[in-house]
Computed example of a mutant assay.
Amino acid sequence: MLDRIKASIPSLAPAEQRVAHLVLSDPRAFANLPVTELASRAHVSKPTVIRFCRSVGYDGLSDFKLKLAGSVSEGVPFIHRSVDVDDKTSDVLVKVIDNTVAAFLKYRNDASSVAIEKAATALAATYQTGHRIEFFGAGNSGIVAQDAQHKFFRLGVHAIAYSDGHMQVMSASMLRPGDCVVIISNSGRTRDLMDAESIARKNGATTIVITASGSPLASAGHIHLAADHPEGYDRYSPMVSRLLHLMIIDILATCVALRIGGEKLQPLLKEMKNNLRSKRYA
């Protein structure tokens, strides 16, 4: 959670940056002090303290303090342990699994339910009105975009995934108000994805971005679903980031499925399962 706040500082207003520094200087005290005292110590107004909490992706001051207290006390310690050249297979197994589990638990504590609610509502509304839903990603994130298309396809949602930069720009050029595009990026700095987001937003489409806090893409999107972890975006083979993005897609797909409703989905999924039985060995 503290790493997320640090990453968000450059994108915050000057007054909100003072609140951020106050949090980082003494997280335990911030979680326990009343808003009046917090505002006084940061030399800002009480509404600024609340705006800061929302700017970094939380529902408000109460939600922020609750998750901050949990993060500080129970401490899901996110110690990203890199694999070393002399590691044994058993060491690699433990490090890779520990890094992944820690990232998932950290996300559970840090995730903004408000942002997820907004994204799921936008996607469900796009589906119900028959507008376009598209998923964009480049490189490793392009595979996540394809997985997202498959997840939503199984729900009866017509969606398209593009991983080619030219196709993304061409498709974004055809998006219109009521359409929705989900853009997935580890770094939040990929030029092709930034260009596609800008075009889609200019054409009136809703842009949902799954990326790191404080990145240019995070600031550009209408709805930002933060995916923060210590794994550098310039690593040759991102692992934790890919799994974190896949999990966020799973959460979105589940939320959208609930909005579509079981009465409509259950018969569809049952028929699909029955039709696939002939494809399997008995």
Rank of each mutant, 00 (worst) to 15 (best):
D147F: 08
L105T: 06
N99E: 12
I116F: 14
T89M: 10
V92E: 07
I133E: 00
S113P: 03
H150M: 11
A148R: 01
A138E: 00
A115L: 07
A122C: 13
H150G: 01
F152R: 03
V114Y: 11
V96E: 08
D87F: 15
G139I: 12
K118E: 05
A138S: 07
G139E: 08
K88W: 06
I133D: 00
V94D: 13
I133Y: 00
A124R: 06
H131S: 09
D98E: 11
S113D: 12
A122T: 11
H150E: 04
V92Q: 09
D98R: 09
S112G: 13
V85K: 10
K118P: 00
V114F: 12
K88L: 15
N99S: 13
V85D: 09
D87V: 15
I133H: 02
F136D: 01
K118D: 02
V114E: 11
A103W: 02
F136A: 00
Q149P: 00
D86W: 09
R154D: 09
T121D: 04
Y107M: 14
G142T: 08
T126D: 01
F153E: 13
N99L: 12
K106S: 09
A119T: 04
V83H: 15
S90D: 11
T100F: 10
V83D: 06
V83I: 15
Y107K: 08
T100Y: 06
D84G: 06
E134K: 05
A124S: 15
D87T: 11
A111H: 09
S141G: 14
Q149T: 06
H150R: 15
A120Q: 03
D86I: 10
A119V: 05
A111C: 11
V114A: 15
L105R: 14
N109L: 12
V83M: 13
G142H: 05
V114M: 12
A102E: 06
E134V: 14
H131I: 04
V144G: 01
G142F: 03
V96C: 08
H150F: 09
A125F: 08
A124Q: 05
A145E: 00
V94Y: 09
G137P: 04
R132C: 02
Q146H: 15
I143P: 00
L123H: 00
T89S: 12
F152K: 04
R132A: 05
T126Q: 06
I97R: 13
L93Q: 14
K118T: 03
A122N: 07
A115G: 04
K95L: 08
Q149N: 14
Y107A: 03
Q146D: 09
D110P: 04
